[in-house]
Design a protein around this nucleic acid. Structure first.
Lengths: 231, 231
DNA sequence: GGAACAACTTGACACTGTATAGATGGGGGA
DNA sequence: TCCCCCATCTATACAGTGTCAAGTTGTTCC
C-alpha cells in the first residue's frame, strides 16, 4: 500500500481530496476574496475535475461550510489563547478576546466573510454548529466572568437557555460591538475616513479605545456569579 | 410628446428603464435575497433584453450601487424621522436613530446586505459616496449632540477630518454596536438561540436593552460641544 | 480472484455577466 | 415639414459557473 498518504496526486484517486479542496479554498479566498471564489477554481488547484468535490462536500455550500467551520474554530482558538495571555500578563481577558476576534478576521478577511453571511452555507451542518457554539460559548463565559469580577470563567458548558438568561443583553452587546467594528472595517466602510497608509495604525488605536469603552460599559453582576444555574 | 412617461412598455424604447430596473432589483432582492439576485432576472421583469441595462448602469455592480445609494438614503431618512419623533416625544434621539437603523435593515434585509458588503459595488460612485456620507453624518452629529447634552445637533456639515477628531472612538462605538447587532440578526446568527416564533419580540426587547447600554456607556463631552471646530 | 463500493472523469445542461454589432425611433436643426 | 443623429434597445455570441447523470478506475473485503 506504500505511500498513499500525501499531498500529491499519484493516480486516479487523489488520496486526500477533502483536505486538498479546503486548502485550495483558503488559498483562493486569500488571493481573490469571497467575490472571486469559485468551486471549479478550487478543483483546478487540487488537480481534479469539477465534479469531484461533490462526493466530499455535496455542493458549493458544503465546501464553504467546511471553511466556515475552520473559521469558527480559529476564532475560538485565538480567543482562548488571548485570554490565557491576558491572564498571565494581568490584563483584561474580555478586551483580549475581543481584540483576538478582530485580529483573526483581519488576518483572513475572506474566510471571515464566509463564516459571517456573505455566502450561503449549510446551517444544519452539525460540525459547524458545534464550532459556532464553541466560539459563542467563550464569549458568554468571558462576559459573565468579567461582570462577576472573576479572574477567569469557571469551566462548564454554555446552556442552550442562554437567550433567556438575565444577562443576555450584555452578551449581545459585547458581540455586537466587536462584530460590528470588525465587519465595518473588513468591508471597507472606514476607507473614506482614513487613507491607506494610516489604516493599520488606526485599527490598533481605535480597537483599544473601543475595548476600553466596551469594558467600562458593562454593569457588574449584582447577585450571581453564574446566572446560568438559575431555576 | 404625448404620454411617454409611464411604467409600461409601448414600443422599442422603454421610456424609463433605469427606474424600472431599480424597481425590479428591489423586488428580486425582497423575493430571493442577495444570493438569488441576478441581472438577467431584473431585465426579464423589466421586459427588456439582458444587455439593455448595460447602457444605464454599466454592469451588475452599477445597478447594485444604485440600489445601495437608495439604501443609504433610506437609512438617513429613517434616522432623521426617528430623531424628530424622539425629540417631540421627549425621548432619546441617539437611541431612536439606532433603532431606526435596525428597523430599516429588518424591513429590507436584501437591500441592507447590498449596502453593506455582500456584493461588489462601485465605491467610487459619487452619488453613493454622497448618500453614505449623509448617513454617517447623521450618526456623527447625533452622537456628539447626545454627549454634549444638547436637545438636537446644531445644523452643519460633518468635516472630512472626523477620523482625527477626539470623539471618533465614541462615534465608531455607536455605529459598531448598532451595525453589529443588525448584521448578526439579519444574517441569522441568533437563530440557534431563539426559535422563529419569538424572534420578532426578541429583537424589540433586546434592541431596547442594547440601546440603553449603549447610551449609558457614552461618556459625556467634557470641554467642547462641537470638537469639529478645533484648530 | 471476484464483487462491491467509494472516488474520480467525462460530457452535458441551464444558467450567469458581458462584449459586439446591428436595429429602431424620438428629438433637434434645417 | 423633413431628415439625420444618436441614445436606446435587440440579437447573438462567448467564456465561465454549479450541478447532474453515466461511465471508469482502483481499493478493499470476503
Amino acid at each position: 500500500m506504500a505511500e498513499k498518504r500525501g499531498a500529491g496526486r499519484d493516480g486516479y484517486h487523489h488520496g486526500d481530496l477533502r483536505q486538498a479542496m479546503i486548502d485550495a479554498a483558503e488559498a483562493v479566498l486569500a488571493e481573490r476574496g469571497v467575490g472571486g471564489f469559485t468551486l471549479r477554481e478550487c478543483a483546478r488547484r487540487a488537480g481534479v475535475s469539477a465534479a469531484a468535490p461533490a462526493h466530499h462536500f455535496g455542493n458549493l455550500a458544503g465546501l464553504l461550510t467546511a471553511v466556515a467551520t475552520l473559521g469558527f474554530d480559529d476564532l475560538s482558538d485565538a480567543m482562548d489563547a488571548a485570554a490565557a495571555r491576558a491572564s498571565a500578563a494581568g490584563g483584561c481577558r474580555l478586551a483580549a478576546i475581543c481584540r483576538a476576534y478582530l485580529e483573526t478576521a483581519l488576518a483572513r478577511p475572506g474566510r471571515f466573510r464566509v463564516v459571517f453571511g456573505r455566502r450561503e452555507l449549510d446551517k444544519e451542518d452539525p460540525e459547524m454548529q458545534r464550532a459556532g457554539g464553541r466560539a459563542f460559548g467563550i464569549l458568554v463565559a468571558e462576559t459573565r466572568a468579567h461582570r462577576a469580577g472573576l479572574a477567569a470563567p469557571p469551566p462548564g458548558v454554555v446552556s442552550s437557555e442562554t437567550a433567556r438568561s438575565p444577562d443576555f443583553a450584555e452578551i449581545l452587546f459585547v458581540w455586537s460591538v466587536t462584530h460590528g467594528f470588525t465587519t465595518l472595517f473588513i468591508d471597507g466602510q472606514f476607507d473614506f475616513l482614513v487613507d491607506d497608509s494610516e489604516r493599520a495604525s488606526m485599527v490598533s488605536l481605535f480597537a483599544d479605545r473601543l475595548m476600553t469603552l466596551l469594558v467600562a460599559a458593562l454593569p457588574p453582576t449584582t447577585r450571581l456569579a453564574n446566572p446560568e444555574h438559575d431555576g
